[in-house]
Design a protein around this nucleic acid. Structure first.
Lengths: 171, 171
DNA sequence: TATTGTTATACTCTATAACTATA
DNA sequence: TATAGTTATAGAGTATAACAATA
């Protein structure tokens, strides 16, 4: 019932006490810690971390329409509508007609939104650094590289059901 | 407004395109990928990944009572009651009187629960390995070590609001 | 008085389906 | 016919408060 040939050691066997499924447990723990750490920083934006990520994506990645934006954030389009509504009401973003498709709408940041994002990024950056206290610079860089690689792999391995496939449509 | 002195490079500066807050974005992406990857494997257990993690925790970590179990899983006690109810109904776990405290109840796995867990662990292990396809053995081991360290740091840094502080009470 | 677990209630988040306007 | 976005409804998940039993 075990792996029969000389298969590579599973992640559950690389560390003592690392059980099958613990990968998800640790990830959930870290993600909760992250959200707790940045919650105060992103409080001025509606929708907690989601709202911050939306604003950041709009400014830095310039998605062509709401679908691309929602796909990147892993948010369903029906949920995204309400979240954008809140940010529009806070005068942080606005909807404009997409240049190539009259059905679609492009989300752009207002001057106020860009200014707020710049301020929040300083705080979020500090919160993330504090979260990583205990890891050396080398370890932090290793972690950043590994999770980038892994999320890219997940992106490519599940082209049908992944939450960021539409990022190719940016611009 | 930037960091004034020679502070160590933040994780947002260690990789191109790594923005403040992207740590949470990548973690969320990987966590969703993980849950998607193991969802089919853990389907026989009520409560999805949560139910599997509960069963795994009960068998391998033997928490003293429901509070310790819920703290480890990051589940509120009011939610835990219903989740345990479902697993009890499926005859995978049962509630027994805690030896040291007549208020508390200890959750133990039934023979059926232990047998099912052993079967599911093989599948979960395979699913996690597939999720890590693209990472070398060395990289997988690095990742396992880093997220273990990081979740332990989060555990220690937030003794009041962390979800696994009660793991000291195990046994 | 504080804690463990349960229950009830309400709130949030998310998923499903129907609708419009465009392609 | 298919797609982008909106809206409404229902469902799952989560949080708050009150309660009984025990420390």
């Amino acid at each position: 019932m075990s792996t029969s040939r000389g298969t590579p050691p599973s992640i559950s066997q690389t560390l003592p006490g690392f059980l099958p499924g613990d990968l998800g447990w640790h990830l959930g723990m870290i993600l909760r810690g992250h959200q707790l750490a940045v919650a105060q920083s992103v409080a001025p934006v509606p929708g907690q971390v989601r709202g911050y990520q939306l604003l950041s994506t709009v400014v830095h990645r310039d998605p062509a329409n709401q679908q691309a934006l929602g796909s990147h954030l892993g948010i369903d389009r029906t949920v995204l509508t309400y979240l954008i509504d809140d940010l529009v009401e806070a005068q942080l973003v606005e909807r404009i007609a997409a240049p190539s498709d009259r059905r679609a709408r492009k989300i752009i940041a207002t001057a106020r939104g860009e200014k707020l994002l710049a301020e929040l990024e300083v705080k979020v950056n500090a919160a993330e650094q504090e979260l990583l206290t205990g890891l050396s610079d080398t370890q932090s860089a290793q972690l950043a590289g590994l999770i980038s690689t892994l999320s890219a792999n997940i992106h490519n391995a599940q082209p049908g059901a992944n939450p960021c496939e539409a990022m190719d449509l940016l611009g």
